[in-house]
Design a protein around this nucleic acid. Structure first.
Length: 395
DNA sequence: TCTGGGGTCCTAGGACCC
DNA sequence: TCTGGGGTCCTAGGACCC
């Protein structure tokens, strides 16, 4: 069976969702969605007007404001982005029974085995999709078509903005030949730098090189790189698999080595993680604390519990123990802490009631259910462990 | 210029077991 | 007394993606 995929990528998604919601922004050309430029935030998305000034996603907001002084910084709630994304997905589902969103602003459609229906090109279908997305969601998109997922995505990159690019079976090797290696999936800044130091920056260079020669240069990763450089990658479209981790982290306004303050923040993060686990019907065996120093050196400390847990008290208690244990070492480094986070991993489905559970744990579970009910009615902040409540004598 | 937050996957060493 | 090899689990760190 011949395989064909469409990759639909919304253009400047976060910016355009904000524009949709606030009509007064429609005539504003220089828009940036991201953190406060006076703080430690980064750019999430920039309008094409702002991109002309060199503003890019991931860039510190302060830098973006310097490069594009006339830019307006905006943002909206996550729910608004999610709602827009759902609308787009519903449109895509009208065109293929197999649609997998790969984030809020992009999705794949499987058109494998549709040769009789669309014998030559999928461009007319892509055209219709683009029009329907525009009409239903009010958003522009770019669409790539390819014999595998990787090529479809690279084609949509080449199509931006508002374009359509089709790479037919047999054309993929020539199509990727003209791309830089860093355009390939899995080639991030580190790997691109390593390859560059070996004189490799373009896909065609890897195509021309025997796999043995590549192996002596970069080792075991040679085979994977070689396959991608020849335009292979992802001929099946799988739906999302189960959640592997649940986490919350936050970057502080300024670095601190105040243990009490870090603990209060950590408890709130851990409570959110536990609450999200319960909401998803999951329990975690491993709790991981993450700390990033002022100089960006990041450490993690984790502990695996004897049994999976989804209870605030247990997740919080484990996280706090990890912080207290790690803190001596943190102080010694003397660089302050800029980020603190908690992750729950090693997830299983929440266990059913245990007849032999110790009474203390039963009470804990009952308390947790009560907390959940209060939060459902009055919001998350309405119910907190006592030690999380900010004291009157300052932070 | 000074670097978010939520994820996934991979590697590697050590403990422990057979 | 010295030493196999494989498998699994745990921990720490890192690259990458959106």
């Amino acid at each position: 069976m011949t395989t064909r995929f469409l990759h639909v990528d919304l253009d400047a998604f976060f910016v355009e969702v904000c524009r949709r919601l606030r009509p007064e922004l429609r005539l504003v050309d220089l828009l940036i969605v991201g953190g406060d430029p006076r703080g430690r935030g980064v750019v999430q998305s920039a309008s094409y007007g702002a991109r002309a000034f060199g503003v890019r996603a991931g860039m510190p907001s302060a830098e973006a404001a310097r490069r594009c002084p006339g830019a307006t910084f905006v943002r909206t709630s996550f729910d608004d982005y999610r709602e827009a994304s759902r609308t787009v997905r519903r449109v895509l589902e009208e065109f293929s029974p197999l649609v997998v969103m790969a984030g809020l602003d992009e999705g794949y459609l499987d058109f494998s085995g549709t040769d009789r229906l669309h014998p030559v090109s999928l461009l007319p279908v892509a055209e219709q999709i683009r029009e329907r997305v525009r009409a239903e969601a009010g958003l522009d998109c770019s669409i790539g078509i390819g014999p595998n997922r990787m090529v479809a995505k690279l084609a949509s990159d080449a199509a931006k903005p508002r374009g359509l690019v089709e790479v037919r079976e047999g054309w993929q090797e020539g199509f990727v030949a003209g791309l830089p290696l860093k355009a390939l999936p899995g080639i991030g800044p580190k790997t691109a730098g390593r390859l560059k130091s070996l004189g490799l920056t373009e896909v065609w260079q890897v195509q021309a090189m025997p796999v043995e020669a590549l192996e002596t240069l970069i080792g075991v990763e040679a085979k994977v790189l070689k396959r991608r450089a020849h335009g292979h990658g992802g001929r099946v479209l799988r739906g999302r698999q189960e959640t592997r981790s649940v986490s919350r982290e936050t970057t502080l306004d300024r670095d601190t080595d105040d243990l009490a303050r870090l603990e209060r923040i950590l408890l709130r993060l851990a409570a959110h993680v536990a609450s999200q686990l319960r909401g998803a019907g999951l329990a975690a065996r491993t709790v991981t604390l993450k700390l990033r120093h002022g100089d960006f050196v990041t450490i993690t400390r984790s502990q695996t519990l004897p049994a999976p847990s989804d209870l605030d008290a247990e997740i919080i208690g484990t996280a706090r123990t990890l912080l207290r244990t790690a803190f001596e070492e943190v102080r010694r480094r003397g660089r302050g802490i800029r980020l603190i986070g908690v992750a729950a991993t090693n997830l299983t489905e929440a266990p059913l009631a245990d007849l032999f559970e110790p009474p203390a744990r039963t009470r804990l579970r009952q308390l947790t259910s009560a907390v959940d009910r209060v939060r459902e009615r009055f919001g998350f902040e309405a119910a907190q462990p006592g030690s999380m409540v900010k004291r009157r004598d300052g932070d």
